[in-house]
Write a protein that binds this DNA or RNA. Structure first.
Length: 508
RNA sequence: GGCAGCGUAGCUCAGUUGGUGAGAGCGCCGGAUUCAUAACCCGGAGGUCGGCAGUUCAAAUCUGCCCGCUGCUACCA
């Protein structure tokens, strides 16, 4: 029985082009997926798009096409971005997929069978122009032509108190079970700051949830209830089940849902409540990551600071971008990016750090040993280096398993520093003139440390890692974490060394 | 308004249950070196640990108040 790991990203809403937030979430999730695969897990990695809902319908109507045709077009840039970024998803799910529709209806039926769904009236402030309900708190006060106070939607459109028939879910009945879940499983919601917020929210009592709409039809039809389509979040959250192979799918429950901090409530409250209602197992962990901001400022089209992640990846390179986002931003916290920050960070870590370490040792092997991989032997500080590598490797695994991605990379950089220090202390370039055997021992130890470092960096920089491992003589079948202690064959002819991480020089 | 959290070197941040002289990375300065991608290695510069007042033999670490910031939530309307 092999170890299994099922993780998901949130599904993106394709009513525009993908932005940096999508890239960030995809990259972080991909790093986790790749880490688990290298660690011997059988991994299922799901990502995709959330294609139903009013906004999509409106956007489609605005350009005069059917919703399905509209999303068939807008989904493409999301898939292309994932491909460009090297996202190793096993399935790109679209909520318009046939199996998903069937799954949603089956899930709905299970909740109905449980007696948790009932028909009632939904009342609220409705904007005809927006075709949307707004919460009281979202309304803004204004004055009409006569100077009388009126309420407007956040978009400034008129709203009126409206009553509509709707299916409701007995969310209120799940406050206690949810609190028990939180108490029993404190790491269900991460980071912990989000956990506290959700517990406080549930602690304050839960209202039943409107689960269907009759004002538009771009959604999954409610079984046996003509005119009703499911509330988009039912449809959206259920994608995780569809991607698992269905309600009884072999991959359910999910081990990890990676989502943005803005949708934590849906995943930490509604979703487990739905699943409890349907008598299905709950996901293990919901992780709400932060936002990456352009120079610390939220992107907006009006400010003209919207950055196209595809363009960014093309300019800097996928691996450089991936490294920056996962190393610089504390996973779970908000972060900031800029050209300067990306260049500085990657020059320091990749060019000066990992790349230079590999290059300085490899070039000595090429020049002094004819490119033949040297074998181990005694050298000053070798034990200390080995000890550091061991300790830091443990720190790396602990951090990765704890979703502290930035901490894991911090540990990796500490390994680079340790290896560079060891190398400098032993000055193999001097030994080359006095004691070639001693020199080769130093080169072996350095290259082996580099090999370990690159193995651990694979989840973050899959492409560059492969090239580096090629240069280090690590065969394709010796690149998982099980081979962490397997040294390269002594005497193996290494390829001509070449820089993998060139230093970024800003064009004048 | 309530709840929670934050405010530590130029920048990003670590700092278990209060106790050796307050730390890391980046940036900066100096030294050393030349294998390497002007990279690496060593050393240094030093910040009232947001402010004030307390508790204590002793507080960045506890208490109260104040200032600033963030998240969640509520309400006035």
């Amino acid at each position: 029985m092999s170890k299994r790991f099922y993780l998901t990203t949130a599904i993106a809403y394709p009513n525009g082009r993908p932005h940096m937030g999508h890239a960030y979430e995809a990259i972080a999730s991909d790093a986790v997926a790749r880490f688990k695969r290298l660690d011997g897990y059988d991994v299922r990695f799901l990502t995709g798009t959330d294609e139903h809902g009013l906004k999509i319908a409106q956007a489609a109507r605005a350009v005069g096409v059917e919703p399905r045709a509209y999303v068939d077009g807008t989904v493409q840039p999301f898939i292309e971005l994932d491909r460009q970024l090297g996202i190793s998803f096993d399935r790109f799910i679209r909520t318009t997929d046939d199996d998903h529709k069937a799954l949603c209806q089956a899930l709905w039926q299970r909740m109905a069978d449980k007696g948790d769904l009932y028909l009632d009236r939904y009342e609220g402030w409705y904007s005809v122009r927006d075709e949307a309900y707004y919460d009281e708190s979202e309304l803004v006060a204004a004055e009409d032509a006569q100077g009388l106070p009126v309420k407007l939607s956040p978009q400034g459109t008129p709203v009126e108190w409206t009553v509509e028939e709707s299916w409701f879910f007995k969310l209120s009945a799940y406050a206690e079970p949810l609190l028990k879940l939180y108490a029993d499983q404190p790491d269900f919601i991460q980071p912990s700051s989000r956990f506290n917020e959700m517990r406080a929210f549930v602690d304050g009592g839960l209202k039943d949830l409107s689960m269907s709409r009759t004002s538009f039809d771009w959604g999954v039809p409610v079984p046996g209830s003509t005119g009703h389509v499911m509330y988009v979040w039912v449809d959206a959250l259920a994608n995780y089940l569809t991607g698992a192979g269905g309600s009884d799918g072999e991959w359910w429950p999910a081990d990890l849902h990676i989502i943005g901090k803005d949708v934590v409530r849906f995943h930490a409250i509604y979703w487990p409540a739905f699943l409890m209602s349907a008598n299905l197992p709950l996901p293990k962990i919901v992780f709400g990551h932060g936002f990456v901001l352009n120079r610390g400022v939220k992107m907006s089209k009006s400010d003209g600071n919207v950055v196209d992640p595809a363009e960014m990846a093309t300019r800097f390179g996928v691996d450089r971008l991936r490294w920056f986002l996962l190393r610089e931003v504390a996973f779970g916290e908000d972060g900031s990016y800029s050209d300067e920050a990306i260049i500085e960070r990657t020059n320091a870590d990749l060019a000066n750090g990992i790349g230079n370490l590999a290059q300085r040792a490899l070039s000595m092997v090429a020049k002094n040993l004819g490119g033949a991989m040297p074998g181990p032997g005694p050298s000053a500080g070798a034990d200390l280096l080995a000890e550091s590598m061991q300790t830091l490797t443990e720190a790396y695994f602990a951090a990765m398993n704890g979703l502290q991605l930035h901490r894991a990379l911090e540990a990796v950089m500490a390994m680079v520093n340790a290896a560079n220090g060891y190398f400098a202390d032993n000055a193999p370039w001097k030994l080359a003139k006095t004691d070639v055997a001693a020199m080769s021992h130093v080169l072996h130890a350095t290259l082996d440390a580099t090999r370990r470092i690159v193995l651990m960096v694979q989840p973050v920089m899959p492409e560059a890692s492969q090239r580096l491992l090629d240069l280090l003589g690590v065969t394709a079948d010796a690149r998982t974490f099980r081979e962490l202690d397997v040294i390269v064959s002594i005497g193996l002819q290494l390829p001509e060394p070449q820089g993998v991480f060139p230093r970024w020089a800003e064009p004048a």
